[in-house]
Design a protein around this nucleic acid. Structure first.
Lengths: 255, 255
DNA sequence: ATACTATTGTGTATCTCCTACACAATGAAC
DNA sequence: GTTCATTGTGTAGGAGATACACAATAGTAT
């Protein structure tokens, strides 16, 4: 978690000035706890992650603090809404990071913000095109980065991102992430590219299609995606009902 | 987390009296954060969980707080050691519980302990016979319960236990839990019973054995377990080298 | 001792799922 | 209209999962 969140929080009705937050964050927030979000998107065949840049400072994950009467899950939802403008996005807690050295190099040497923080990591899957990244009051940047080309991040944020990615990778078996990451209509090659970037490996085209269709949660539309060079691929969409039913029962199941 | 941990902590070199902890826990611990452990064991064909009982109070999970300069993982290890006397046990963080209502019914109305706590859940897999449950100074009990017959627990501890069990269930696919839960030598029926209790379903005997042996981390011994009525089953043990190698690479892998 | 009973040890046929693999059609670019 | 990269599609073989039955045996009851 970085300074960033202070500013975002300032916009809310209950508010502290950045300075107050730095020194007396405990008035509004739980001490020693923060939330960091790894926000994944997918665009032009690349898996993306949304990062913030401090003014004259390093890049970091969007994060924030937990209000006294707010659930941790809700904090994550709120932070996400502040960054992306989106409600109802897929959000999953994946790990708490509690090494006392994790904030090595912290600049603040005194005040509330200088305390040790244990951060709870969430990852979000959002539809790229619906997101309007919101840089905050200090005019720091907020933008998408290719997962494969993320710059140095503050503290242990690279580690947090990596863990999120691993968790996402493992979740592929029981969660059809395309539903959250792709637009309503998409082509099979797009879906495949998504899986390939998450997994970091190429997959066989025919087998992939067979496997996806076998999940029985996709509908093939009578429409093709034109515009790209070459043969126009069919469009698909998720069948919400079947999708929900499948999610309830678990997709596969080793045992 | 309950009063229990206060007492345990008292034994350590840095110490607060129970009363001090109740009112000024922040001298030693991070505020708003606790750790709770779901300690699983296996005995007589039943999956067990280690619970504590407050004096004249409800049952709860063993838990504790995080010292100012201690990692969260280490806190969990320490708490576990205090309860079970064991080092080097398999311990895994599985979820943080952050609902502001989770401690509904809390008795303490003032002092540090009355604050809101977000708890980080860990589950442990221990060898039943090696554990000597340690009830603490207030002579509350500390004992094993059948997972299927756990009594009412304080706060959201039942929920925490259930989530731990679900996580354990899912982990069966990539972690051969028998290594941590069973004694050095064990029979195939014992191993199977372990899987069956965790999964809550029966499994085919021949297929189970085939599958376990196919993992290639078991050694069949030239010994049988006598004493039980009926035909004496062979004993097996884990091959540590092969086990470690398999763990490093991941056992199966959906993709 | 003998019979009894519950439990263990073991293999095969079938099915399902995963994998490997190639050629014709097409839409855009030139 | 030719070219080129990409899409659409099916099958054969292999690996792994599942279903299933009978002989051997260690105690127990008599």
């Amino acid at each position: 978690m970085g300074v960033k969140s202070l500013l975002m929080t300032k916009r809310k009705s209950e508010s502290l000035s950045p300075e107050e937050l730095r020194t007396h964050g405990e008035r509004l927030f739980l001490s020693h706890l923060s939330v960091d979000c790894v926000i994944f998107g997918f665009h032009e065949g690349q898996l993306k992650v949304l990062l913030l840049k401090w003014k004259d400072g390093p890049w970091c994950l969007p994060g924030g603090f937990i209000k006294h009467h707010e659930s941790v899950d809700y904090s994550a939802t709120r932070i996400l809404k502040e960054r992306t403008g989106l409600d109802e996005i897929y959000l999953k807690q994946f790990h708490a990071f509690g090494d006392p050295q994790r904030e090595r190099g912290k600049r603040y040497k005194q005040g509330w913000i200088a305390n040790r923080f244990v951060t709870i990591g969430y990852y979000a899957l959002v539809e790229y095109s619906k997101v309007f990244p919101q840089p905050d009051l200090l005019s720091s940047e907020c933008k998408w980065w290719d997962v494969a080309a993320v710059p140095d991040l503050i503290y242990d944020h690279k580690q947090i991102m990596t863990t999120a990615l691993e968790t996402l990778r493992l979740s592929l078996n029981d969660h059809p992430v395309g539903y959250n990451l792709l637009p309503l209509k998409f082509t099979m090659p797009e879906l495949q590219r998504l899986y390939e970037t998450i997994l970091g490996q190429t997959l066989d085209r025919r087998n992939f299609q067979k496997r996806m269709l076998a999940l029985n949660i996709l509908v093939k539309l009578n429409e093709r995606k034109t515009g790209g060079a070459h043969k126009a691929p069919f469009l698909y969409r998720f069948d919400k009902k079947k999708y929900d039913r499948a999610m309830k029962q678990g997709l596969v199941g080793g045992w």
